[in-house]
Design a protein around this nucleic acid. Sequence first.
RNA 1: GCGCCCGUAGCUCAGUGGAAGAGCGGCGGCCUUCUAAGCCGUUGGUCGGAGGUUCGAAUCCUCCCGGGCGCACCA
Length: 503
Amino acid sequence: MASAVERLAARVGEAVGAEVELERPKDPAHGDFATNVAMRSAKAIGRPPRELAQELAEKVVELDEIESADVAGPGFLNLRVGDRFFLDALAEVDEGYGGGWAETPERVQVEMVSANPTGPIVVSAARNGVYGDSVARLLEFAGHDVSREYYYNDAGRQIDLFRASVDALRRGEDVPEDGYKGEYVVGLAKLEGDPVPRMLASIEQTMERFRIHFDSWALQSELEQRLPEFLPRLDTYEKDGALWARSSAYGDDADWVIIRSAEKGGTPTYRAADIVYLVDKLERGLDRAMYVLGADHHATAKWYRAIARMLGYDESRVEVLLYQFVHLTRGGESTKASKRSGNVFLLDEFIEEVGVDAARWYLVNRGPDQTIEIDLDLAAEKSPKNPVYYVQYAHARIASILRSADDAEVGGDPPGPLSTEEKELIKRLTDFPTTVREAVERRGPQLLPNYAIRLADDFHRFYHERRVLGEPEQAFRLGLIRKTQLVIARSLDLIGVEAPDSM
RNA sequence: GCGCCCGUAGCUCAGUGGAAGAGCGGCGGCCUUCUAAGCCGUUGGUCGGAGGUUCGAAUCCUCCCGGGCGCACCA
């Protein structure tokens, strides 16, 4: 069913005889909604845009919903709508508002983090998790069937080196030159047994603490064993004693070794496991396999698509989400992160210092293509400087009013005309579905925190100008803030941030 | 050299064809009334540069400059 805004667009389109899209002007002085239909069709009709706009304005203003239609700028049609429209639009806001619209629900897997279990999760891996998890939450909200998977390398050189580092300490020796040297290695050396499962358990614990839950864990060692059954389906050749995948023939920039030469051990490379893993995903019944990768792995995107093509799959089922790095600063000083040197900034420390909500907010706040710089001192401040608290505060304020209202009546029409603040707030609520849709389509969860700030903005202004309790409009305004609260909570939940009832 | 990403206010960044924005910083106001983690005002920009496409470009295309990242029989 079409939303109030869509119905309005259709009505206006009917009146002017063309497809109309309504946008929200940034400047409220430009009206409640605006359309560029006159400028779009001016050329085809062969008339000056402003003249055409004037003519369309006269038709549009005949509609019941439209209070005024003005021509502005190069030929924009600025529309003001009546209270009835606002009330209808507000009535649509409920728990599921903005979600459940996916026309063809897909089974989607988001594979994310997937850091080697050779050390604790650091902050850049946390961006991977927050980004992937937020995209997953968005897809779920849109109506898709989403699962989250962690793929870990439990075999190979890095893991061997990690185990060797722990063993060396246990024997009272120094860790190998290129081994792992962090504090955590010392801790693991004091415990019995294989350090890898312990490391993995600790990673899982950290991720849970960060509100990221994995449905499944895939092991490289198991996957690579199944390589022989897929070899016949691959386009390969031998060179220098190694087996190469001819990925360059399928869109990649190069060919890659999948089985090492005898003198290098004759073992499969991680790329061999990639192939098995991809087939496994696509044959498991997933419609779409999403990989979340850091900018340093950007070249892998072509490799995944190339092997999908090589194996005869539709490459559009494979999607790689890339994100740029995170730089932490403290009072201007940059903190460098290297897992092996032991001089690292761990996610656990980050959460300790700034809290889960602010940590997630800062990591998802920026577009994935943008490197993030986070000033730890600023992020840790629980003050108005921190936008996440600004938004949460709006939610808490609403909760407080609702508590004071007790079991008073909530909802219904207002006794008089709507105030400017009420209209602005409702218009902002009508932006939510389009914001969600765009965030899903662009895989851009950063749109949500930015929207949430605007919504909190409109609420705080409303709060400042208009009283709720004890006013003739009480019931209506209680309904309005209740719905505002729902949308704030949803916006925050989609990025994994909590909406507190008091602060 | 080849490939990917970025360049918007003093700082950190939104803004992916329609009327230049936010937060922080700076300056100045507002608390006997539902939470001042709030509100209001003000300061501040040749959207890296040059061409091109378009009625219209921060946004699309080309080139140039600057920065980050990658181009393993490591993962």
